[in-house]
Simulated scan of single mutants.
Amino acid sequence: MAKAQQPPEQRLSFYLDILRKHLQKLEETVKTSLEDVPVVISGMASSTIGMLELPYKPLPFATDGSDLLTKTIAPTADFRHTTLLISGVKSDDDVMRGEETQLVGCQFELSEQEQLFLHPGTHAKHVRVQHGRALALKTYMTGEFFALLSKQAILANSVEEGGKLEEGNNLQWFEKGVRDSQQANLLHNAFLVRTNDLFKKATRQENYFYLSGLLVGSECRDLLNSIPAGITLAGEPVLVAHYSAALRVLGIADKCPVQTKTAEEVTLRGQLSVFTHSRIKEGTP
């Protein structure tokens, strides 16, 4: 955070030096020179606490990445790579940095029907897509609320991290959490995590998945009011598994196709697409 207070030139130099060291390690690993390879960066690097602040692009934006805001940083004697920095996107009351590039990597087809990009995480993103453009954005603080409740609230004593969704009774308790999230207020349901433990209805690990189901179910509840023609669920495999289960329990997966992709896959594809369009704009082969 201290670097955010430094002049832009110092911040940029600081972060490029970190990148240089990582690129040197990568060269050693692959035993190949990367000197002429460009670097593409998306996410918080373009924020107020990143290497160089770029303004948000207002919605809508093209899902092929052709009109996202970018900045090319020329190579220097200290950092010999051309660097492309990709900015984030904003609506009237919401923002995202990084997920816009992942959305591009999902390679949405042009369609008159409304599609949904769902990226689970600390701040889950729901982006509505139509006619090859991302039109509307909603952020849900699902992951952050889960971390606070499971680690800092009184519920921390009633849950235990560990195990996988498919192990033991974890899936059943997750599904119960999703179903319960539709029946009562989250502020009440959350206390059931404590009573589940007090009355020995669930183990603490099962309770962990129950709490997860409550929160993910509460988030996905909004989709029942406007089910899209299709959902692309992209993120880390563990979270994708949780959300896939929630969409199935809620009946959403029965009403529209849900395809899943990994965060790594869509990030790399999205960065390549944005980079290609930036070269075209610059007239660079």
Rank of each mutant, 00 (worst) to 15 (best):
R97T: 07
I49L: 08
A62G: 00
T142S: 14
A153T: 15
I252S: 09
R204C: 06
P75A: 10
R20F: 11
M141E: 09
A202P: 07
Y56R: 10
S244Q: 13
A147I: 02
L52Q: 04
K261I: 00
K176V: 08
G162C: 13
T63P: 07
C106I: 09
G65F: 10
K255W: 02
E28V: 06
K31D: 14
G177I: 05
L239S: 14
N185A: 06
C106G: 13
Q115T: 03
Y210L: 03
D93G: 15
L165T: 09
R269P: 01
S47T: 04
K3W: 08
A62C: 00
S273L: 08
L223N: 00
V178A: 04
L34Q: 03
Y15H: 08
A253M: 09
A156H: 05
L186W: 08
L155S: 13
Q102G: 07
V30C: 15
L223F: 05
L135G: 03
L34A: 01
L250N: 00
K71T: 05
F191A: 00
P58N: 15
I86K: 04
Y243P: 03
Q172C: 04
E167L: 01
L23A: 11
I49C: 12
E206S: 01
Q10R: 12
K71W: 04
N169V: 01
D78E: 08
L224C: 00
Q172G: 01
G168N: 15
Q107C: 08
Q182K: 13
N170H: 13
F199Y: 10
L272N: 07
A74C: 02
A4D: 11
G163W: 05
Q172S: 09
L268C: 14
D17Y: 06
A77I: 01
A263G: 11
E35N: 07
C220P: 10
S13M: 10
I231W: 07
Y15W: 02
G213M: 05
Y140F: 15
R20M: 10
F79K: 04
K164G: 13
K164W: 12
K3V: 15
T32F: 12
L187W: 04
L118Y: 12
M96A: 14
L148G: 00
G162M: 11
I227L: 09
F108C: 09
L118N: 00
E99N: 10
N189R: 01
G98H: 02
K255P: 01
S46P: 09
C256M: 02
V89P: 01
S218M: 08
K138N: 13
E53T: 12
C256G: 03
G43W: 05
L19M: 08
A229E: 04
L214T: 04
G168T: 07
Q107K: 10
H242E: 12
F117K: 07
H119Q: 14
G213Q: 03
G217H: 04
F108E: 02
Y208F: 07
E35R: 14
G251F: 04
V266Q: 02
P8K: 02
F146K: 00
D67V: 02
T48V: 14
L192P: 05
R269T: 08
L26T: 14
V30E: 09
A134Y: 12
L214C: 00
T70R: 00
L23F: 12
Q24V: 02
A62V: 07
T232W: 05
E109N: 08
A234V: 10
L135S: 05
A202M: 06
V238D: 13
K3S: 15
